[in-house]
Design a protein around this nucleic acid. Sequence first.
DNA 1: AAATATTAGTTGTATATTACAACCATGTGC
DNA 2: GCACATGGTTGTAATATACAACTAATATTT
Lengths: 154, 154
Amino acid sequence: MCQQISANNREILSIISGVSRALRCCQQEPVFCEDVTFSQFFILDRVGEKGTLRLAELHEILSVDKSTTTRLVTPLVNQGLVLRKKSKDDSRAIILKLTQKGKRIREKVLVCLSEFLDNVENGIPQEKRAHVYESVRLFLDAIQRACAVDQCRS
Amino acid sequence: MCQQISANNREILSIISGVSRALRCCQQEPVFCEDVTFSQFFILDRVGEKGTLRLAELHEILSVDKSTTTRLVTPLVNQGLVLRKKSKDDSRAIILKLTQKGKRIREKVLVCLSEFLDNVENGIPQEKRAHVYESVRLFLDAIQRACAVDQCRS
DNA sequence: AAATATTAGTTGTATATTACAACCATGTGC
DNA sequence: GCACATGGTTGTAATATACAACTAATATTT
């Protein structure tokens, strides 16, 4: 007989598909405000948190290609939310920093995002929350390790 | 003071970003074979499982726009993996069905996918698995409910 | 039965996200 | 100094996606 996919395998498959649906739903803009998309907000938030951030660090954090990093930052620079300065220590490097407007927008989006995040939180029974978060991380890590294995093989 | 985002909120935010990373990694093709992407495989698998599937049902399952559904199916039809027939019951409807080649490819991809899925599974301590899967689903549901709320509001 | 509304699907158009390859500039190690 | 590594950008292309406008067919309401 053909090798059959196990029930557990199906379960994972179905979860992955659910993940993709959930992600799509929360990356659509209705959730947000100030014309900032989810991924743009991440960047704004990371930069704002650290004060300054090298593009290379951002590239690490997002784990996307360098070129993608550049392109994700560009619209934020164009909207006047982020500054792009040359580093003095290493003149290859670019340092990102929020403008005043960037800081304001970050705060505003934080507020409207936190409404959404509260809703997510309240959707999980309180006593299970910590546990659920931990489990989700376990799952994500497992996926990423599995991907890494695959990449080595090929 | 400004309204601050809570630690829990940050946790969720960070998980969502992790989700997006994990998803990207497993939607990249190295994981797969036979030139079929993850989402293409989903379709192949859904159709294969049911025997026949109406486009409208697929649209439901994937929860993407109708037009997107059409466009996701098109390459599979072009590669000769899926047949697109008019329904006799409802002549508006399109019925999807796997070709012989489609069936073969589905099986092949199932095999190579199951390697990946086993790796995911083995990345989670055995005694925790059932629990982890359940938690992930809880989390996904919470996100989707939160999205739905947001959409009503606007 | 006619008018209206709903459902199924396609096509045009536009956008976001993404990678890879090629490239340039600058640093680093020997 | 040369070879190699690192940081970043640009060209190009693919995928996934939505929304709006449209056609055709079916269902519902009067």
